[in-house]
Design a binder for these strands. Structure first.
Lengths: 202, 202
DNA sequence: AAAATAATGTACATAGTGTTGATTAGTGAT
DNA sequence: ATCACTAATCAACACTATGTACATTATTTT
């Protein structure tokens, strides 16, 4: 029996479709993409598409979730307790460097999904992953005092800030190295945006 | 001659269409909304829609730009030099309070446009407005040292952070007052997320 | 080589799009 | 209050995309 996960034809077809999705979204955005477009670009029969996905929304979601899953897993991997109690001063977190490296590898997909033609829901999914990760880390830290603002707002602030910088980095063609970016992020988060901007505390 | 800006029928029709857009986007997201839906909900003839908008994308863009324009104007108004040299310590900026108030008044539209069913391009537009405003302010400040990271990244960081918090606030039903929110934002930006989180600087 | 199944090709009913032309109804200016 | 103007309606059009179905062909697995 042709196992549905090993049959080469299936893997091939799915890869064609997903590649087509990325390309077409760059051109017209998700809304503008039709199943016809996808199958033409992927050079497969239109009916074949429906053998694997319910519709284009289904395709989008499955593609997104795959990335989310990968991010989750490699966050877990790169997150032993060492990092937590490590020096958070002005050293970039290795975990963040790894994140940038992963994004760099999947730049084309990430850029279009996070960009103006992408899906806002994808932002939320990623921020959710970041948030959970941060809360866990915060929990494990020992040298801390009570937060000065509601944690929920703080989480929104930091996750959005980080994702926003990532997005901007992608849009500008990833001119900085993952290490530089991680350092920049760490500076802003630990020293604070105003301080980093050069605004003197009075 | 019925001036196209004063004819009641036009104003009425446009209002119906835009209200329908907000409602329908809450239900199905922009992608799911058809011109048919809009005109049915607005209770007008389908042909009438095309008298005012080229297509649904045109409608979206015009609706967005109207909000952007309003934000721009009232930012300008609330931005005399007083604010700049005012104490930026732990006082909420009056300008930010006003922004939250405006958003509160247009909550339904803002929430759906910024939410997971909204348009990512709208985020960019708003962040662009914020960025220009911030750069102007920064320019006018006197007590400052050179920035420690590229200004572009700093701007992405802060604008994304602020917008992210606004989004979260909307999604949670605006439980805090505009003043509280402005204070929270000011704390995080001027003291820094890590400090505010209670992480002691070593 | 045989069995299983992925992919194709074709056709169908359904629904949305954007446009047109004739008609009705509401509006602003006088 | 009237009248010229034009917004809005209605019906019809060709066109494109959707999702489904079924018989057929091609490829893969065992």
């Amino acid at each position: 029996m042709g196992n549905s996960k090993t049959d080469r034809r299936i893997i091939r077809t799915k890869r064609f479709i997903r590649d087509a999705l990325t390309e077409l979204m760059e051109e017209k955005g998700f809304e503008g993409v039709t199943v016809r477009d996808l199958t033409q670009k992927a050079d497969i029969n239109r009916g074949t598409f429906y053998l694997h996905y319910q519709d284009k929304y289904d395709l989008l979601e499955k593609s997104e979730n795959e990335v989310i899953q990968e991010i989750k897993e490699f966050i877990k991997k790169a997150n032993p307790n060492e990092i937590v109690s490590a020096n958070l001063k002005e050293q970039p977190l290795p975990f963040i460097i790894a994140l940038f490296e992963y994004i760099q590898e999947n730049a084309r997909f990430m850029q279009v999904m996070l960009g103006p033609k992408g899906n806002p829901g994808f932002h939320l999914k990623i921020k959710e992953v970041m948030k959970i990760n941060m809360l866990e880390k915060l929990e494990l830290m020992d040298n801390k005092t009570p937060p000065l603002v509601p944690l929920e707002h703080l989480m929104s602030y930091v996750t959005s800030a980080h994702l926003g910088v990532i997005q901007h980095w992608l849009e500008q063609g990833m001119k900085q190295s993952p290490r530089e970016m991680a350092l920049t992020l760490a500076s802003m988060t630990f020293l604070g945006p105003a301080y980093v901007a050069g605004i003197k505390r009075t």
